[in-house]
Design a protein around this nucleic acid. Structure first.
Length: 282
DNA sequence: CTCACATGTTAAG
DNA sequence: TTAACCTGTGAGC
């Protein structure tokens, strides 16, 4: 379940379990044997997340770089009794980190590699501002958005414009901004972008705290509206993401979907436009 | 059980 | 624009 909040949680969880001490690294699956051997026995100095990228620095100056892609996961477990042997890996475990009390198994990632510090810096340099980082500058994203004819829905998913937003946060933040996803970037107003950025920061911080993407305001919760809670998904309550064909929680219009650049858009045709002067799509 | 699809990205065509 | 990567889940039979 990897949007940016997942990676920031992962960075915190990995450091909590393995940070400031040596860690044993193996690649039971066999596709990261050399890299695992390089960091095994090294002290884990720090972990961090930038957008959807996980990075961990070891005392050897090696950086572990992981990207979960669409289906990658890290599963944590406790070594019991402490000091004992972790359970045999099940399935394709690319990387296992372990110490005397914890282990963590990485599966399905698109990237698991070692980097130099310079390569780590270059990677971060290619990413747009991450709403979950205190040093992020939303003006950098605005500079890209305001000059682009591409749809705001496409720009929000471009990791070089801003990093960490995925399909769920895209759909939900555009709904909350009442902005149609096909609105060209250059038509978005500065104040709209500033409000949207603030909203993204708030939504994603909540995601880091809870591990859930919950985007509906109190007045639109299942309790407040007397409807059934969402159950088809591990996420929380949402306005439009994967709700195509269902009624909008606000206006009852039927939520729509359309593929854009290979990913599904979701929006409410009535709530999401900003007046007649800016109606986009149909 | 099988199948479609998924919160992502890259490289091939 | 499409396939490929590769795991997990839910729907349907």
């Amino acid at each position: 379940m990897p949007e940016g909040h997942t990676l920031h949680r992962l960075a915190a969880d990995v450091f909590a379990a393995f940070g400031d001490r040596t860690v044993e690294a193996t690649s039971p699956q066999g596709r990261f044997v050399e890299g695992a051997a390089r960091i095994s026995g090294q002290k884990l100095v720090r972990t961090e997340a930038h957008g959807k990228h996980f990075l961990a620095e070891f005392a050897s100056a090696d950086w572990l770089h992981i990207h979960l892609g669409l289906i990658g996961t890290v599963r944590f477990g406790a070594v019991e009794p402490a000091g004992g042997t972790p359970p045999e890996p099940v399935g394709q475990v690319r990387l296992r980190l372990a110490n005397d009390t914890s282990y963590a198994d990485l599966r399905g990632a698109t990237i698991c590699e070692l980097m130099t510090g310079g390569e780590r810096d270059a990677l971060i340099g290619r990413l747009g501002p991450d709403p979950l980082r205190d040093d992020a500058d939303p003006e950098l994203a605005w500079t890209r958005i305001r000059r682009s004819r591409l749809p705001i829905g496409q720009l929000l998913m471009d990791q070089s414009v801003l990093s960490g937003v995925g399909n769920v946060y895209r759909a939900e933040t555009l709904f909350r901004a009442r902005l149609h996803p096909l609105t060209p970037g250059k038509v978005v107003k500065r104040a709209e972008w500033q409000r949207m950025w603030t909203d993204i920061v708030e939504l994603m911080r909540y995601g880091v705290e809870t591990g859930r993407i919950d985007t509906v305001d109190d007045e639109h919760t299942p309790d407040a509206m007397g409807r059934d809670p969402r159950r088809d998904d591990h996420g929380g309550e949402v306005y439009v993401y994967r709700r195509q064909g269902e009624p909008c929680h606000v206006c009852r219009s039927v939520v729509r979907t359309q593929v854009l650049a290979g990913r599904n858009l979701f929006w409410c045709p009535k709530c999401q436009r900003t007046g007649l002067t800016r109606r986009v799509g149909s």
